[in-house]
Structure formats: structure tokens, C-alpha cells
């Protein structure tokens, strides 16, 4: 008969196992899922988890990136390289194509394209008939995400209605959809930024170079830092400084700011994360600072 089983998993092993279980539930329940892959650290964790979940088989889903056209080249190169190494199919759909079609209209030339990703994403979902998008969002990122389900239901317009989410009990996920509806699945919901970095360290995952400390030209603007690029030039009168920075999140250039740091290895980043005093989004996501509820608003409009 059974002997006493006193062994328990470490917290990282537990989180990994939960994420693998969620990925396999998506594969088992959905007929046409896709994994959203940006080349960022959270989605790189997802790829490692998918390897652990499905190798030696192929992934039972393609990878897809919604490109705003305003991403750092280092990240895009890394994205392509990683997809190729894995031998998995990568689909890229761009916000610029939606702009050409007229489905995305910017209020001004320099408006951030980040929130317009939702339109391109929904167009891609329709184009391929995806019934589930797997993403790397985490509940600790932002208040409005704390109540997000692991399998989050979106209607035909990609809308998230916080009042109309399915109860989620035990690990019995319900990813059923009718035609046109969509599930957003978040395998690393229960991970914190620290967990992500610890996992990257343990698994020895490669990352785009801009995650590590490097010299970069920046200007200081409304209490934060703005990288100086072709897309985000310095305004007249602003002082351009060249300092050591790294990115804690990578996304659209217009709304992702670096932090001052000399952490040039994953080990140093883990230590820095353990002692940091500012949240990931607070430090680096300019698009969340407009109001306390801005993430909730964007999610209702179909944002990831």
C-alpha cells in the first residue's frame, strides 16, 4: 500500500507544474489555440513551459506576435531567432497593416500604438479562427488583473466583462466557447515578477539584450525616463543623458521606459528585483499611469 508521501514541490516547481497543466488543458479542450509571443521575458517563460509540456512532440499551437512596428530591434531579432530554434511556426500580424486597412486610426502621429494592438489581435483571431489565445499576463502586474481568471472568457468583440466571468474552482478549467468567442488563457497567472526572474535563472533562459544593463540615451520626463529613439525623440529643451539602464518589461517603445541599473546578469537582476521599491508597471509602463483604472478600461476594450 501507499507509504507516507512527505515530499512537496518547491514553489518554482509548483508554479511550473501548474503552468504546464494549464497549457495541456488548453491543448486538450480547445480546437485551435495560439500562443502570443512577443520576445519578452514572460512569453519566453511560456515557451520553456510549452517545451516541458509537449516535447518530444511539436507544440499543439502556433506562436503569434502582434507587432506595433515600434518594437526594439533586439527584441524582434530575438523573437525570430527563438521561434526558429524551437522549429515552431511564428505568425506576425502588424498594427501598421491595420492602419493601412483603416481599422486602426491614430489620433496623432505620435500616439502610442500599444492600445491599438487589441484591434489587430481581434483581426488575427478572426483571420485564423483561433478559439484560445495563450498569454503571459500575471495577476500581480496590476490591480485589475488580481481577479482575472486563468481561463478568461471574451465575447465576439474580444471584450472582457468582469461581471460575466466563469467561476474557476479547483483546477477544473472551463475553456468551452461557441463560434466567434474566445478564451484568453494565462498559465503564469500566479507568478510574480520575482518568480519569473528566478525561473529564467534556474532554466538558464536566453533574453533579448535590452533586459540587461547597457548605456542608452534618455531624457527625464514627468518623473520618469524616456529612451531617445527615432520614434521618441527628445523634445526641444530636454537634456539628453547617456546612462546605464535596463528594461524590466519590453513592449512598444513609446510606452516602455527603462530603469537605471547596472545589473548585467540574470543573477544580479534577481537580487535587484528582491530589493526594488517600485512595481514593474509603476516603473516602466507609461500607459498605466493615466488613472488607477486604466488597465481595467483597456481590458474591457479587448486588450490582452
Amino acid at each position: 500500500m501507499t507509504t507516507q508521501n512527505k515530499q512537496t514541490l518547491s514553489h518554482l516547481d509548483w508554479l511550473e507544474s501548474e503552468a504546464i497543466h494549464i497549457l495541456r488543458e488548453v491543448a486538450g479542450q480547445c480546437s485551435n489555440p495560439v500562443l502570443l509571443f512577443s520576445g519578452g521575458k514572460d512569453s519566453l517563460c511560456l515557451l520553456r513551459l510549452a517545451e516541458k509540456a509537449f516535447r518530444p512532440g511539436r507544440f499543439p499551437f502556433p506562436l503569434m506576435h502582434i507587432d506595433t512596428g515600434h518594437n526594439y530591434k533586439e527584441v524582434i531579432d530575438f523573437r525570430d531567432q527563438r521561434a526558429q530554434e524551437l522549429g515552431e511556426r511564428l505568425i506576425v500580424r502588424s498594427v501598421e497593416d491595420s492602419m493601412k486597412r483603416g481599422t486602426v486610426v491614430l489620433k496623432s502621429v505620435d500616439e502610442s500604438r500599444n492600445k491599438h494592438q487589441s484591434v489587430t489581435l481581434i483581426e488575427a483571431i478572426e483571420e485564423f479562427g483561433f478559439d484560445c489565445c495563450i498569454g503571459g499576463a500575471r495577476r500581480d502586474e496590476e490591480k485589475a488583473r488580481a481577479k482575472e481568471r486563468i481561463m478568461s472568457f471574451r465575447d465576439e468583440f474580444g471584450q472582457w466583462d468582469p461581471k460575466n466571468q466563469r467561476p474557476e474552482l479547483w483546477n477544473l478549467y472551463n475553456a468551452r466557447t461557441h463560434k466567434g468567442e474566445n478564451i484568453r488563457a494565462f498559465p503564469i497567472s500566479n507568478w510574480t515578477e520575482m518568480d519569473v526572474w528566478q525561473y529564467i535563472e534556474r532554466e538558464n533562459l536566453g533574453l533579448p539584450s535590452i533586459y540587461f544593463a547597457h548605456k542608452r540615451q534618455i531624457v527625464r520626463r514627468s518623473g520618469g525616463m524616456m529612451p531617445v529613439t527615432d520614434i521618441t525623440p527628445a523634445k526641444p529643451g530636454e537634456l539628453i543623458e547617456e546612462i546605464l539602464v535596463r528594461f524590466r518589461t519590453v513592449g512598444d517603445i513609446t510606452c516602455t521606459a527603462p530603469v537605471e541599473s547596472d545589473a548585467d546578469t540574470v543573477g544580479k537582476i534577481v537580487l535587484e528585483t528582491a530589493t526594488t521599491t517600485i512595481t514593474e508597471r509603476g516603473a516602466t509602463r507609461l500607459d498605466d499611469q493615466t488613472s488607477d483604472a486604466s488597465m481595467e478600461q483597456r481590458k474591457k476594450e479587448g486588450y490582452f
Binding site: H11, K143, A146
Partner: peptide, 30 residues
């Protein structure tokens, strides 16, 4: 800290399960 959604804050109540995380160095808590 735990009052999450705008809709809930307006009503001054918590209407759904929210998940929070902390760690003590020896244990992670959900």
C-alpha cells in the same frame, strides 16, 4: 490595496475572488 476593480470601488464592496501574493523568503503565499 485589495479593492480591485473600478466597478467594485464605486460600490465600496468586493464582489469577486481576488488573488494576492507575498513571499517570506521561506515560503510563497497565494
Amino acid at each position: 490595496l485589495t479593492d480591485g476593480l473600478q466597478a467594485e470601488r464605486e460600490q465600496g464592496i468586493t464582489i469577486d475572488v481576488a488573488y494576492r501574493y507575498f513571499s517570506t523568503g521561506t515560503r510563497k503565499y497565494i
